[in-house]
Design a protein around this nucleic acid. Structure first.
Lengths: 186, 186
DNA sequence: TACGTGATGTCAGTCGCTGACATCAGCTGC
DNA sequence: GCAGCTGATGTCAGCGACTGACATCACGTA
């Protein structure tokens, strides 16, 4: 253990989400976040690149999880089957619906945060298509499968945090993927 | 005519693009842009909401052009035919390849600008799908057609500014759309 | 000719973000 | 046990984006 209360990063994440919910993203200063977490603003910027990034700290883990699942899929599996495995893995990581819903409500209320979310999604998509290409999927198919996978994730995530909480994210994603299949087949 | 040299907004746009090209987006201060345009930084912020927006000032015109073309398409036209008409209209607006290429090179060099571009594209997509729904296209088809149209625009735009300048944007977009059709048909 | 108007300048201030340096508890080697 | 190293944090000064309030001033108009 260090000299200070450990887990400053986690405390900063919680404090930021709370304050963004209570008074809005723009109205919250980094100094306030630090104060609530028991550190200074300077320490905040040692953990997070900027004021938005504190809401997206989990995105690297998410991406690594997706790619690991993609690479763990059987070699014989098709592109979309591998993408489905990646989405299933995401469903196993994102289980705290309350937290996801709160975080999402902050993001949809602020344009800057939506910008950051869009670039994170683009990064996920690129990681997926890169992974598919490593599996031998050729170029237009790899990009299309990746974009489709991310689109399904976004739609399903939106439903999951909005609708009554009777299903988990993995289920909603599978259902959304099936619906997409039905549409494109028609 | 006013007291001052008219066209401050246009001068600011030119000055900003020049400076972003010469020394990079981050290294350029708003005061420098104003100086080159013959105004103060305060005036810059009266024309543009922030330092990035000066590169995206034309996006409203682009969106209005697309929507006008969409609504001008014959009532009997299918969703993708209407989208094609919208893309053709975009091709008629974006004719200065040199300018587009310069602007794009600035954007791809900076993450903040890519974020802004992503949200502009999302806005275009939403406007397109809204327009399609007003034409009576129902919901999953409208969104899919809109996303497809924007995807084609992005891919074709990238090709257009990158490849040797022997075709105009409209041609490249039509070609990209045909290629997509071939892929999805298979 | 006085007055209103609109684009601009000026000024002060807040806040995001950074670099440089100081601090200090614990670990490590002796 | 002591000296020194290390790493997380604090402190401080500073830059630059952005904003609100108010002043200015050429032009059009009554």
């Amino acid at each position: 253990m260090g000299r200070w209360e450990p887990g400053a990063g986690g405390r900063l994440r919680e404090a930021a989400l709370e304050l963004y919910l209570e008074q809005g993203f723009e109205q919250t200063t980094v100094a306030e976040i630090g104060e609530r977490a028991g550190v200074t603003a300077r320490t905040f910027f040692r953990y997070f690149a900027d004021k938005r990034e504190v809401l997206f700290a989990g995105s690297e883990v998410l991406q690594d999880t997706m790619i690991a699942a993609l690479e763990g899929a059987p070699e014989s599996a098709s592109a979309m089957t591998a993408v489905r495995a990646a989405l299933d893995a995401v469903g196993r990581v994102l289980t705290d619906r309350e937290h996801s819903a709160r975080r999402q409500s902050v993001i949809v209320a602020n344009a800057e945060l939506q910008e950051r979310e869009l670039i994170k999604m683009a990064s996920l998509s690129r990681a997926l298509s890169d992974g598919l290409r490593r599996r031998g999927v050729s170029d237009p198919q790899a990009s299309l499968a990746a974009e489709t996978g991310i689109a399904v994730f976004r739609v399903a995530f939106e439903r999951w945090v909005t609708e009554p909480a009777d299903r988990d994210l993995a289920q909603v994603m599978r259902e959304s993927l099936d619906q997409l299949r039905a549409i494109t087949a028609g």
